[in-house]
């Protein structure tokens, strides 16, 4: 079985994918993960997950270029200048 290993480098940090390993069962996988990713005390903690338990999603459909929840959906510069002019607060 293939296992994916995620490691946390320091307390508080998010776990990030470190690599994978092959092991006959969960127990061996834990032991091997400890060896591969912990023997130099380089990890705070590890998550060992059977690859079959990982669901990958890589399709995020946005066919019509919806921009209202992105920064480029808003161009405030021109409006801001106009509003300042109107209020008489433009920086001279």
């Amino acid at each position: 079985m293939i296992y994916e290993v995620f490691r946390q480098e320091r307390k508080g940090q998010a776990f990030a994918h470190a690599g994978s390993l092959e092991a006959p069962n969960d127990e061996f996988a834990e032991e091997y993960a400890r060896e591969f990713y912990g023997r130099r005390q380089e990890s705070e903690a590890l998550w060992v997950v059977p690859r079959t338990a990982v669901h990958e999603i890589d399709d995020f459909v946005d066919e019509l270029g919806r921009n209202y929840h992105r920064v480029d959906g808003y161009s405030l510069k021109v409006k801001l200048k106009e509003a300042r002019d109107r209020a008489g607060t433009s920086p001279s």
Binding site: V71, G73, Y74, L76, K79, L80, E82, A83, R86, A87
Partner: peptide, 13 residues
């Protein structure tokens, strides 16, 4: 915040 500021700016204009 961007959305809100845009709404406010547009109304102020």
């Amino acid at each position: 915040i961007l959305h809100g500021r845009d709404v406010v700016l547009t109304m102020m204009l």
